[in-house]
Write a protein that binds this DNA or RNA. Sequence first.
DNA 1: CTCCTCGTACGGTAATCCTCGTAGTACGGG
DNA 2: CCCGTACTACGAGGATTACCGTACGAGGAG
Lengths: 119, 119
Amino acid sequence: MTPATPAISSRDLPHPAREEIRLEAVLHALADPMRLRIVRELAADGDELSCSHFALPVTKSTTTHHFRVLREAGVIRQVYRGTAKMNGLRRDDLDDLFPGLLDSVLVSAARQAARLGTG
Amino acid sequence: MTPATPAISSRDLPHPAREEIRLEAVLHALADPMRLRIVRELAADGDELSCSHFALPVTKSTTTHHFRVLREAGVIRQVYRGTAKMNGLRRDDLDDLFPGLLDSVLVSAARQAARLGTG
DNA sequence: CTCCTCGTACGGTAATCCTCGTAGTACGGG
DNA sequence: CCCGTACTACGAGGATTACCGTACGAGGAG
């Protein structure tokens, strides 16, 4: 049989608790173009995207690095599912701590992208 | 006669035009604790504050550096008035480019400060 | 078991950043 | 003209960051 979703691996990744998330860290995480792009895709395509789904113009090592920064800042949640690592925005936590912040960043990024003709 | 406000000096400081302001640069500027503190004070006390008004726990050289980062990112506008340099938030430009962003950052910072018992 | 894919860990390089101290400039007042 | 105040410019140290290449581990498919 072919389970739709492979079992979640026992490998666990360190995430900050909700109360440990710092605004400065979140802003710093979102300030990088590559990471902002990742967050925008996560917000647009829904959450549950594997790392390899993103075709970033950097190597896999660097991609891993950026995902780690986002996770340690509390912006995304990562979970192993078989060999894949699924990524999801921590919308609930972020909206609770920083109401409106994520949305305004996403809107701002979209507006700027439209203004500059970049995706 | 004693003019209430000394003449604005001819020394001009380079500011990015509204269309040149980049979201990534703004987020990066706001991601530093010292600069976030400056922006919060500017938003609270109104704009027209001199650099020396801020009692930051760093030297004046470092303070100058942070103000420059904020100015070059398009977050604040600086103008010489006599020997003093007055600083003001570029609220209109920021709100036009990134609606809601500055406010949500300010609210988030205030909430976090209250939560952590830090000013 | 073997291969392939996905992602990590490690090590290294170049760039950026925060901080400082010192020296210097612009401006206003006596 | 001289001095004090406000801020800058320059140079440098130390930390962090972004990026890469290579080597490795974990898990599914044959």
